[in-house]
Amino acid sequence: MSSRWTLACRIHGKLDLRLQPEEAPPLGDHDVLLRLGAGGICGSDMHYYEHGRVGAFEVREPLVPGHEASGVVVAVGASVSRVRPGQKVAINPSHPCGHCDYCRSGRGNLCRSMFFLGSASVFPHAQGMFREQFVLGERQLTAIDEPGISLGEIACAEPLSIGLHAVNRAGPMIGETVLVTGAGTIGCMCVMAARLAGAAQVIAVDLSDRALAMARQAGADSTIRSDDVPTSEWSDIADVAIEAAGHPAALAGCLRAAKRGGRIVQVGTLPPELPFPANLVMQRELSYLGAFRAHLEFDWAVQAIRSRRVDVRPLITAQLPLSRAQEAFELALDRSRSTKVQLVLE
C-alpha cells in the first residue's frame, strides 16, 4: 500500500464495522494533515455501531465515526499559521457556518449548516476521525505545547466541553447543590464542570458501582445507587439536576430531585416517544433546559485540561490500536469494565 493510502474505521450499518483503506485527501492552503493521536469512543459512536443510528440520524452510507480526538500535525498548507508539523493539537469537531442567525447570536452549536465530524446528521455524512490520517482546516485546531499533557487527555476536551456547556446552560451555581444522573463519561464531565462552576455539593446517581466510583474520582461529594435508594428519598434536594444518562427513569428522578424553582438540564439523548409529566414543571416552576453539543466551551475545556484544573486521566480506561477497533467498541459498550475507551495508532 502506498503512502497515499491510510486505514479508516467505517460503520456500514448495525453491528457492521470494517477497517478499510482510503486515499489520503489533498491539502488545501488553509488545511492541515494530521495523524490520529487518540480518539475516544463516545456514546453516539456506540449508538451508530450498535443500532445503525442515533435518534433521527441514520447511517445511510459508510460512516467514519469519531468526533472526540487529538492529533499530531504531519504537514500544513501554504497559508497555515496556527500550527506547525510535529505539534500536538486539540480538535474541535464542530464546524459552524459563522453566517446564520444562530452563529451571529453566539450560539454556533445550533448552526443551521453545522458540519459536525463523525455524524450522520447530514448527507453525505460528516466523516469522523477514527482513521490513521485526516485533513482539517486550521481553525478547528488548538496547538498544545505543554509536554506533560498526553494525547489521550487532549482528546477529552470535546466530552469535557459537553459538561461545561450543560453547566453553562444551568446558569450560576456557586454554593448550590447539583445532582447528576448518569455517571458515564459525560456525567463525570458534568461533575467536573459543576465543581469548576463553584457548586457546594455535587451528587452523582447511577446503577453501577463502578460508575459511581468514577464519579467520586471526578469530584462528586456523594453518590446514590438508584436501584438501592427510592427516588422518594432524593426528592426536593437539588438546585440543579443534570440528566446525563439518557434514560426516562433518570429524567423522572431529575424532576423529583429538583427543588421548587430549580433547573433541569437535559444532556442525554432520550427515546423519541416519551411520556412527560409536564404538570410538575408548571406546579414546581421548574426551568427545563436542553444542552446540545458545545460552542465556546470547547476552548474552555482545552484550557482546563492543559492547565490541569481538571484531571481527566482517571476516566481513560484503555487505549487500543485502530487495528483492534472492533474489540475497542465491544469494550466501550461494557460499562462494567470501561468508562472511556480510546483508539490510538500502533
Score class of each variant (00 low, 15 high):
residue 343 L to P: 05
residue 162 I to L: 13
residue 74 V to T: 10
residue 159 P to I: 02
residue 259 K to L: 14
residue 285 E to S: 14
residue 207 L to E: 00
residue 209 D to P: 02
residue 12 H to W: 10
residue 64 V to F: 04
residue 63 L to I: 06
residue 95 H to N: 13
residue 313 R to G: 03
residue 337 R to K: 15
residue 58 E to S: 09
residue 295 H to T: 12
residue 267 V to L: 14
residue 22 E to G: 00
residue 106 G to R: 05
residue 250 A to Y: 07
residue 60 R to H: 10
residue 25 P to T: 01
residue 66 G to I: 11
residue 131 R to V: 13
residue 253 G to P: 00
residue 137 G to Y: 03
residue 328 A to R: 09
residue 34 L to C: 06
residue 83 V to I: 12
residue 197 A to M: 07
residue 203 I to L: 14
residue 171 G to E: 10
residue 207 L to A: 06
residue 96 P to S: 01
residue 119 S to H: 04
residue 117 L to P: 00
residue 243 E to D: 12
residue 140 Q to F: 01
residue 25 P to I: 01
residue 166 A to I: 07
residue 340 K to L: 05
residue 23 E to Y: 11
residue 43 G to L: 03
residue 198 G to F: 08
residue 320 L to R: 15
residue 131 R to M: 13
residue 17 L to A: 05
residue 257 A to L: 04
residue 336 S to H: 11
residue 142 T to H: 10
residue 194 A to L: 06
residue 335 R to Q: 13
residue 111 C to H: 11
residue 200 A to I: 01
residue 153 E to R: 05
residue 224 I to W: 00
residue 44 S to G: 08
residue 45 D to C: 06
residue 111 C to D: 09
residue 88 K to L: 07
residue 188 C to E: 07
residue 257 A to M: 07
residue 230 P to D: 10
residue 104 R to G: 02
residue 244 A to D: 11
residue 245 A to N: 06
residue 167 V to S: 07
residue 296 L to C: 10
residue 147 P to I: 08
residue 107 R to Y: 13
residue 108 G to S: 12
residue 318 A to D: 15
residue 76 V to Y: 02
residue 104 R to N: 10
residue 3 S to L: 15
residue 60 R to N: 11
residue 156 C to T: 07
residue 188 C to T: 07
residue 289 L to S: 06
residue 75 A to L: 09
residue 52 G to N: 08
residue 218 A to Y: 03
residue 157 A to E: 04
residue 159 P to D: 07
residue 213 A to M: 08
residue 143 A to E: 08
residue 173 M to E: 00
residue 64 V to W: 02
residue 206 D to Y: 03
residue 159 P to M: 03
residue 287 S to W: 05
residue 198 G to S: 08
residue 70 S to A: 14
residue 145 D to A: 14
residue 43 G to Y: 04
residue 330 E to F: 03
residue 163 G to N: 05
residue 203 I to T: 10
residue 82 R to N: 06
residue 301 A to M: 10
residue 88 K to F: 05
residue 45 D to N: 02
residue 315 L to I: 08
residue 307 S to K: 11
residue 236 D to E: 13
residue 238 A to L: 09
residue 340 K to Y: 04
residue 73 V to Q: 00
residue 233 E to V: 00
residue 57 F to Q: 10
residue 247 H to F: 11
residue 36 L to A: 05
residue 28 G to L: 07
residue 213 A to V: 01
residue 263 R to L: 03
residue 228 D to K: 15
residue 310 V to N: 04
residue 74 V to S: 03
residue 82 R to Y: 01
residue 245 A to H: 08
residue 73 V to W: 01
residue 189 M to L: 12
residue 309 R to H: 14
residue 53 R to H: 14
residue 214 M to R: 09
residue 307 S to G: 03
residue 166 A to Y: 06
residue 116 F to Q: 02
residue 280 L to G: 00
residue 149 I to W: 05
residue 270 L to Q: 11
residue 322 L to Y: 10
residue 256 R to N: 12
residue 208 S to W: 02
residue 309 R to S: 13
residue 122 V to A: 12
residue 47 H to L: 07
residue 153 E to H: 02
residue 72 V to K: 13
residue 37 G to E: 06
residue 11 I to F: 12
residue 308 R to C: 05
residue 95 H to M: 10
residue 293 R to K: 12
residue 28 G to A: 13
residue 65 P to A: 13
residue 134 F to Y: 15
residue 133 Q to E: 14
residue 146 E to D: 15
